[in-house]
Amino acid sequence: MRRSVVPVLTVVGFLLLFWYAAAVWLNAPWAYNKAQRAGETLSFSQVVADTWSQKKPRLPAPHQVAREVWETTAQKAVTSKRSLIYHAGVTLSATLLGFVLGTGLGILLAVGIVYNRTMDMSVMPWVIASQTIPILAIAPMIIVVLNAVGISGLLPKAMISMYLSFFPVVVGMVKGLRSPEAMQLDQMRTWHASRGQTFWKLRLPSSMPYLFTSLKIAMAASLVGAIVGELPTGAVAGLGARLLAGSYYGQTVQIWSALVMAAVLAACLVGIIGLLQRVMLRRMGMS
């Protein structure tokens, strides 16, 4: 862990340098254009200074994004529509609801698939095929249709998150519930354990490492689903709405700050699951 800190920081630093350089390169034409119309000639340092401080740059410099994030999180009331925390909260609630629904559905399907041969043969291939369908593509339709039947607000977005997040859970749980070896299953049989006891005392505990790994993937997928689910609702609220509004009005700094917020959110959510995993597995004596 510790020995990778320096390399990671180096890579991140390198990426930041690259970002600044790219900002100069992408924003320079606009800076020259402005200077030409004003009848000035720019020195190199003036160009660089200009490209890092434009109002609507093609690529905002990292410090511009950082300032925007700071202004829209710390300096605005949480309830304000301009607060990024408010929008992140809207996205977060849809993400979590979809995640919980998807995890529940995934675990139920996995139990069915492990215990029922018919389901294993007929449903499992469709679970896999369901993910080759670019579900995000039909997000707009799901939202319009659910709106038409009177379901609006959180649930339509959560449905999309659910569809994206149930898949890793099914695959991981099927693997996990089947992970006990034949010897362990035989041991349960010699103890005359019922099917229910085998499930609760052997199969479920031994599936936990698999479950947590899939939960991390499911959480990331769920966030993507919630963000894309916000696009067709007409940019009302949420990080996806910020992206769309920013792209309509050319507010690149706003787009990037929404992206940074989404990244922070993803990192936090996945990190929390990772923490839970460590605590849980240690208490179960599995780490």
């Binding site: 991140v12 990331a220 963000i227 929404a258």
Partner: peptide, 17 residues
């Protein structure tokens, strides 16, 4: 060693944004 954690992190981000 530096790129793997960063790459894993970015792969989990909502890149579609």
């Amino acid at each position: 060693r530096g790129l793997l954690p960063v790459g894993n992190f970015v792969a989990a981000l909502p890149v579609i944004g």
